[in-house]
Design a binder for these strands. Structure first.
Length: 85
DNA sequence: GCGCTGACTGTCA
DNA sequence: ATGACAGCCAGCG
């Protein structure tokens, strides 16, 4: 586990339920603007239940991806949390 | 230390 | 508006 990963997890954990943040926004929050791809990489490899990675979507409003059932599951979770996509 | 990969992003055609 | 291309960053072999 690297510091970068830890920072990403913390930033994602700070996202309130029903809200979403783009990978770029998270990257900026941890002081690495432009590292959106690296952030996505952390999400993809690190499956941590303490991190609401389903609240992290693309900057264009698309869901992006999910390691636990694909975009369908992600969309379902977001809907159940109150996020209208 | 080098090069490839990916749940991305912004720009151009 | 939709698709293709290039740029950026961290992790891994």
């Amino acid at each position: 586990m690297t510091q970068f990963t830890t920072d990403v997890e913390e930033a994602v954990r700070s996202i309130p339920a029903g809200e979403v943040r783009s990978y770029q926004a998270v990257a900026r929050a941890i002081g690495r603007p432009g590292a959106a791809r690296a952030v996505a990489n952390v999400m993809a490899r690190n499956i941590d239940p303490t991190v609401p990675c389903h609240r992290v979507i693309r900057a264009d409003g698309k869901l992006g991806g999910y390691n636990r059932g694909g975009e369908e599951a992600k969309r379902a979770i977001l809907l159940s949390e109150g996020y209208q996509c």
